[in-house]
């Protein structure tokens, strides 16, 4: 009884709640609005949401991995690999668009599956597995394309990332990317409410207990990596469409996604946080980057900002969990 009571209280006041990130997001939005009032007009806001879709997708994918107590550091290189592979395979031929999109999704899932199996079956720490995968993907993609991206994306492929329904009533325009994002977000929320989602949180919170209570921890974790790989594939389709083919397409996105997840109140090490928080974290991070842009801060400082956010967010949540540790 007492435990249930305490858990209920923790649900409301725990660091993983949505309130802090919402406050930060609104403050940043107000700052942006005062600096650049145009930004808050519906069409520009819609474009901003569309532009932010890839990072939000990656944050959702990363959420599943992190809440299960693992990391996926391979997503940035996976996005790069996907974009380069897509360009070479499509080779500007519109008829190949759909088969290649299916292939990309399968590729993303396969990379996630390998990450998951190595982590759960061979018991390699996930940061080593996924950093190793990062090296392998970067090396393989350079090798396969002889050091420079080849081919080109078809307009059919690119429209997902850069086209929109124009002249929409009230909001002006709705980017395709935003619709894809909403669909994936709905799916992600559904997943977290399913048995699988609860299993993941249990696996991250206390793997031993979860295993002893008959939960299939390994399956759940492997599936989490697959989801992260799939999210990277969808993000790659949007990024390829929006900014075209380059070896830098996905550079640094893994840390962007992790920062977003942490910012959204998800506890690193697993067991706490919500996917909506993670996605809000990504949106907040993109808002912050836009704000930095408007204030003329160099883009090179982004990683410093991310580092500071990670350290601050994790330190704050570690401080808050002191009493909980004391009880144990």
């Amino acid at each position: 009884m007492q435990l249930a009571e305490r858990n209920r209280l923790r649900v409301r006041f725990r660091p993983g709640g949505l309130a802090p990130i919402l406050v930060i997001f609104v403050v940043l939005l107000v700052l942006l609005g005062t600096r650049q009032p145009d930004f808050l007009s519906p069409p520009s806001l819609m474009s901003f949401l569309g532009r932010s879709a890839p990072l939000i997708l990656l944050a959702a994918g990363q959420y599943f991995v992190i809440v299960a107590g693992e990391f996926d550091l391979s997503v940035g290189s996976l996005v790069t690999a996907q974009v380069v592979v897509a360009a070479r395979l499509i080779d500007s031929d519109p008829s190949r668009t759909w088969p290649v999109i299916l292939l990309l999704l399968a590729f993303g899932a396969a990379v996630g599956l390998v990450n998951g199996l190595i982590t759960t079956r061979l018991r390699v720490s996930s940061f080593i597995t996924t950093l190793g995968m990062y090296l392998i993907l970067v090396g393989a993609v350079y090798l396969w394309s002889d050091g420079a991206p080849k081919g080109g994306l078809s307009e059919e492929f690119r429209r997902f990332g850069r086209r929109a329904f124009e002249d929409v009533f009230l909001v002006g325009r709705i980017p395709y990317a935003l619709l894809i994002l909403l669909a994936v977000a709905a799916l992600a929320v559904l997943l977290t409410r399913s048995d699988f989602g609860r299993t993941l949180v249990a696996a991250g919170g206390n793997p031993r207990t979860a295993e002893l209570s008959g939960v299939r921890v390994r399956h759940a974790k492997t599936l989490a990596f697959v989801l992260s790989g799939l999210a990277a594939a969808v993000a790659a389709i949007l990024i390829g469409g929006y900014s075209g083919v380059s070896f830098q397409a996905g550079a640094g996105l893994e840390f962007g996604a992790i920062t977003a997840v942490v910012l959204g109140g998800v506890a690193l090490g697993g067991g706490r946080g919500s996917v909506v928080g993670a996605m809000l974290g990504a949106l907040t991070l993109e808002t912050l980057f836009t704000l930095m842009n408007f204030y003329g801060v160099s883009g090179a400082l982004r990683s410093t900002v991310q580092g500071a956010i990670i350290l601050l967010a994790v330190a704050v949540s570690a401080m808050r969990s002191v009493p909980a540790k004391g009880i144990q």
């Binding site: 090179a300 580092g307 350290l311 570690a318 401080m319």
Partner: peptide, 19 residues
């Protein structure tokens, strides 16, 4: 600050990378 070593040092690494 009791931050997991992996996160703490990645965070510091990102700070330095930005610099």
């Amino acid at each position: 600050a009791r931050i997991n070593a992996f996160i703490a040092t990645v965070g510091v690494g990102l700070l330095l990378k930005g610099y």
